[in-house]
């Protein structure tokens, strides 16, 4: 990534144009692949708003933590609706993937999941897509999420745990209240929850701040942190500014914004 130096200070670039933060993995055509049937096998309530849907996908080609997929519903008359969703489960879940969806008011696809869906129902998925927000489990990972933005980060936490990886991994997860914290029962010492409206006794209430980041950044793992930020645009802006202000290199920050 180039910095914001005035144009005059920038060396004339050669014709090879390689400016961007590289993707974590090469993604070739077959990975996006074809639409595949998926069967809902289990439904697990996480919070009042968020529910996890477990899908059996016999032809799933596998994914890396942090990747997402496209999901399509088809009505009797052939009408279809499709959306992108992050994958919540770790890769080593043979033939199954899990999605955790917020119930969006009036949501055409999430509305079906939250009001109609039951085990045995069939949908279609395509993916995984995008290698940019992927984490193969190699570099130290500093994960920062809010609300359902924790979903792709949880795939990384689960992968880290399932493989017993030694590489450092930390998760800062923001929720409004303890009741709204998704996967609350699954976090371990790698996780610091941040509560913005109401917190358990003994925990401060407040927005993610430089004070939350400082101790993690001070760990300075070998090779440096690769930061993954996921949440609403407002949260992503806030968290990425905090990281930059605290000295995290801008080309080591990967951002996924929920529209």
């Amino acid at each position: 990534m180039t910095d914001l130096a005035p144009a005059a200070e920038r060396a004339p670039a050669p014709l090879a144009t390689r400016f961007a933060v590289p993707g974590r993995i090469a993604v070739d055509a077959p990975q996006a692949g074809e639409w595949q049937p998926a069967t809902l096998s289990a439904i697990r309530r996480e919070t009042d708003r968020a529910t996890t849907f477990r899908l059996a996908v016999p032809g799933w080609p596998g994914h890396l933590p942090g990747q997402h997929l496209m999901l399509r519903l088809t009505a009797e008359d052939g009408y279809t609706a499709q959306r992108h969703y992050s994958i919540a489960s770790a890769p080593d879940d043979s033939g199954h993937i899990e999605l955790t969806l917020d119930h969006v008011e009036g949501g055409e696809v999430s509305g079906w999941f939250h009001t109609e869906a039951r085990p045995g129902d069939r949908v279609e998925v395509r993916g995984p897509v995008s290698g940019f927000f992927a984490w193969p489990g190699d570099r130290p990972a500093l994960l920062i999420g809010a609300g359902s933005g924790v979903v792709p980060l949880m795939s990384m936490v689960r992968h880290h745990r399932a493989r017993g990886l030694d590489v450092p991994l930390r998760l800062l997860v923001s929720a409004r209240t303890p009741e709204e914290l998704i996967y609350a029962g699954e976090y371990g010492p790698e996780t610091t929850p941040v509560f913005t409206r109401r917190a358990p006794a003994g925990t401060a209430v407040g927005r993610l701040s430089a004070a939350h980041l400082a101790p993690v950044l001070a760990e300075r793992p070998a090779g440096g942190w690769e930061a993954y930020v996921c949440g609403s645009n407002a949260f992503a802006e806030h968290a990425s500014r905090l990281l930059v202000a605290a000295g995290q290199p801008v080309d080591r920050i990967r951002v996924e914004r929920f529209g």
Binding site: P37, L73, T74, A75, E76, D77, G78, Y79, T80, A81, Q82, E108, W112, E116, A117, D121, R122, V123, E124, G259
Partner: peptide, 26 residues
């Protein structure tokens, strides 16, 4: 065609400017 049980979807009055697979973000 893989029909999803119970899925009806939004109104079929499709905006002619909407490409395939897209929805109107309003």
């Amino acid at each position: 065609m893989n029909v999803t049980r119970g899925f009806t979807g939004r109104s079929r009055a499709r905006h002619p400017g909407l490409p395939p697979g897209q929805y109107d973000a309003g």
